[in-house]
Design a protein around this nucleic acid. Sequence first.
DNA 1: AATGAACACAACCGCCATTTA
DNA 2: CTAAATGGCGGTTGTGTTCAT
Length: 253
Amino acid sequence: MGRPPFNDQICIKKGPWTPEEDITLVSYVQEHGPGNWRCVPTNTGLMRCSKSCRLRWTNYLRPGIKRGNFTPQEEQKIIRLQTLLGNKWAAIASHLPQRTDNDIKNFWNIHLKKKLLRTNMESAGNNCRIELTDSLSSIDNIHSPLLGKDSTTTPKPTIAASNGPSSMYVLSTENISQLLKTWKRSPHDTKSSSSSNADFNDINKNTHDGNKERHIDYSHLESILPFDPNLEEDFSTRWNTAELEMEIDGVFC
DNA sequence: AATGAACACAACCGCCATTTA
DNA sequence: CTAAATGGCGGTTGTGTTCAT
């Protein structure tokens, strides 16, 4: 009974994705669209499990993803949504279409959790009525709506942009298109993996120059992705609309 | 200049709900 | 209806980079 076994175990490669793998995946999704991930390793020859392919696409390769520093507005929104929803990162991410749940989760764990704890401790130092929390996990409890905690105790966050991202291997859709150009010149380079990685490191180095802000220019990707370049603008527009603000404010107020 | 600590983030793991044969 | 695959999600980890000493 049940479904026939699907051997996903043969696709066992793990670790960081290579540019070649990314291109393969992007090309496949371009042709077939996202979804039916169980077929992806078989049809593409990628030695990755379907889960890994889906994750790579949704968290990294999908068009419309905004990378780099979170804006103060985004930060405020995340804090407020986390207060309301708890650690429902996917739900929170649905209010920030350009951000992935993984990114938001990382941002929360790295920046906001600490910031809130610090603010909380300062409050405790200034006001004896507030009990000092002694662990980072307590921050989650403080903000858990299900516990019915008084939201007025939620510390007001200070706005501070995080520092620039590291220059470790980071892939953007812009990088994919650039790599495609390089790749076309020497598609069968036997040292493709290592050399391509080097190329990508160079690309990222260049991308991270100046203010270190990672900017994704999707215009280069039009030829390989069914992506509307206006999408990012659309997200930005939607982001700024009073409608969306009211949608969220309505929940909080 | 060297080195250890802290930071940042991509990727993996495990669990659960849904889908499918 | 059953059981296994699949997809989705949240938590955690591994590792490269940056910063401080």
